[in-house]
Design a protein around this nucleic acid. Structure first.
Lengths: 227, 227, 227, 227
DNA sequence: AATGAATGAGTATTCATTCAT
DNA sequence: AATGAATGAATACTCATTCAT
């Protein structure tokens, strides 16, 4: 499982030239990638150092312990991310279905397709081991994220665009798509048959369509007498 | 992170009880729970033993190594599970939407709500560390599972019940719901706001409705000129 | 290094028929062979049991611990062995050279060629780890054995058959041959090129000749002015 | 048998001394001494570390496993040793008996009296457990060593100095003396009565005399009509 | 500041020994 | 008496952390 031969530093990194204020960010990036890929316990500090192009001891110059490094990895990739995403709902003029589609695409662009999406996998994998971090993630990401979606769905219902469904369930439906995409990127094969051949943007459009139609106020749906 | 004081065996278990036949299953159950909860690397063999009510050495009486224990945990919780699920599509008389709903509910009953659902989290968390196991899971679960859903969606399209959507995308949509539910059970807080208050069955019904409507052949949807 | 597949009991041993008074001897034989072959630490009690055709627990019925088993193995293969060897020097009529030859051949017949010769290897290998046993071996075997040889050499000198050499050195010379033969049997390749093709009896005759000539009172050795 | 209280490092060694270059040699020396003294299985890595004045972990910095440490101990104390010994036979002017004496004394000086002689004991003790090492020792030491002696004896026979004895037997005779001396140093009490009071060099001279006389072409040995 | 040799607490695994059957 | 499942002390090995350079 450990691959000692992968410890060579990334070749392109010139050694002495690096300014020291870039170090923390480089280390956090390296740590994020490795924590996401292998998990917290299976990631060795030396690997993090090697990936950032420094020596083992240097990591401890910037982070006092592995746990603290982990915490900062999580914090850095969470804080403020949602600000990029939230905001301009009030003055949006289009349909709620369209707003939902844009919201999903924006999430992909700003978060889902970036390394920050790894935090989702990290929380799935390690949340139980680090309740404090899970709590932080929940407070900083889950709650505000779901609030945005909650308001969005409610807007659609209030404006008569969406059926009066259970808002919670509808929110979960949107969230599940995003969770699915985020995890698939970092756990290929674990979630779906061939994530590599799946175009995430196309899939998001498909799902936006599905939700739009699924939530739409049905003009007449005689067949749906089911259940 | 390690909690040495939690190593006491389950209180009621008398020492030195001889139960050769039950032991493997008890150990596998204990190991599954811990691997899912804490991850492979963070789970100590002694914890597994304690949870199964035996001593450290006993685990090695039945499994030669931690890795082998892990492999058998995965194998045991995977093999044959889908057989329970597949099968009676050919002679199903109802609508494809209803068949999909039943399929999702059956999955929940047989897999999603059982400890076996933890394997999904395990594959998300550890798949990269154990490519052989990921490959096995993919071959035994993902591929046949998606094949079932693929046929189901195609049935709906062929019978004129569903719109001629991209089948792959539609399948992913169903899968994402199941992945989401499975992970939520084992990673509370990581996925959604309040999984504890979410009724999985109700949510599955909601989603079955959503998909049924979303995929339904639209009689007239003048508004959906989007995109 | 351990060979688990060799643990099957010896096939020919019928299980229930064995009288229990034979057990200790069988166990001691098995233990001797294994201790000699692999050393004390590397021999597992279960191996001893398997070689004797009994189960692990049974060994402890007869010997309270591994250490005690070891001690009895040594004791049993030492005590009284020399009695067989000593004795009839006083009334021997032939030459001392011939007596020495007979003594060496008798040693081979009674000890060197039997499993008891393994004790020599055991003392070389484990003597430092078990000073008490080494002391016992020294007192029971080395001292009386060398005493016999000492008297024998002295007899030759007194009778004018041997040169007045250093008796200690002469004794060592005889001992070294016996040690060499004993060790070679149990450590093939470690001592000599091809012990397997060496006929011990022929070698003993060769050496008896060498000593006889080497110790003989030289009629005239003009060349040996060396040193 | 284990003596935990003996684990204190050699008292004078300051902690955390950095001496990368010397460490491997120091560790190999410590390991040789302990393997020879106690055997492979009975030697704990921590003892090796303590004897070399370092901590447990440091040993693994230089040798990846106990087995590899053992192999390198053997290799280092074998390779090239014989080169020191061999060589100058062709141009030796003296008698073969004298050449044999010098050869034996040189062996003692270069090998027998040094720690490298412990390898002989190691091969006797552990050869069966490490066939690969035994094979290596046989190929590197036993075979070339016996070849040297073989040529030496043959030289004596060809030059009419020695009787036409069985060369193999004569070689074994010389080897047994060296094996005996080597083992005696490391297994006091196991081989001879009082090795501590035995002067190896004097003993070698005695044996050189014995062989010289024993192999000498006998001018007239009327008594030795035996066999 | 950076390095990497050294440390030692922690974990997987083995095996002598115990004991319920 | 005999068995072999169960135990836990002991040991090889790992890796976060320290510190001399």
């Amino acid at each position: 499982m450990t691959s000692a031969h992968l410890l060579e530093r990334t070749a392109h990194a010139p050694r002495r030239e690096r300014r020291k204020d870039e170090r923390p960010a480089e280390l956090l990036d390296a740590a994020l990638a490795l924590f996401v890929e292998k998990g917290y316990a299976a990631t060795r500090m030396e690997e993090v150092a090697a990936r950032a192009g420094v020596s083992k001891g240097t990591v401890f110059l910037y982070f006092p312990s592995k746990l603290e490094l982990f915490k900062q990895v999580v914090r850095r990739n969470i804080s403020g991310r949602l600000g990029l995403w939230d905001g301009r709902f009030a003055d949006f003029a289009g349909s709620s279905a369209e707003l939902l589609r844009l919201t999903m695409l924006l999430w992909w662009e700003r978060i889902g397709s970036t390394p920050a999406s790894g935090i989702s996998k990290l929380m799935v994998s390690e949340g139980q081991n680090f309740p404090e971090m899970a709590e932080f993630f929940h407070h900083e990401v889950i709650v505000p994220g779901q609030l945005i979606l909650h308001r969005l769905i409610e807007r659609g219902i209030e404006r008569g665009e969406f059926r009066p469904v259970c808002v919670e369930h509808a929110v979960q439906g949107v969230v599940s798509v995003m969770v699915f995409l985020a995890l698939s990127r970092h756990s290929p094969n674990a979630c779906t048959q061939n994530f590599m051949t799946l175009d995430p943007v196309a899939y998001l459009h498909h799902h936006a369509d599905l939700i739009a139609r699924g939530l739409a106020v049905a003009p007449a749906q005689p067949k749906e007498s089911l259940r």
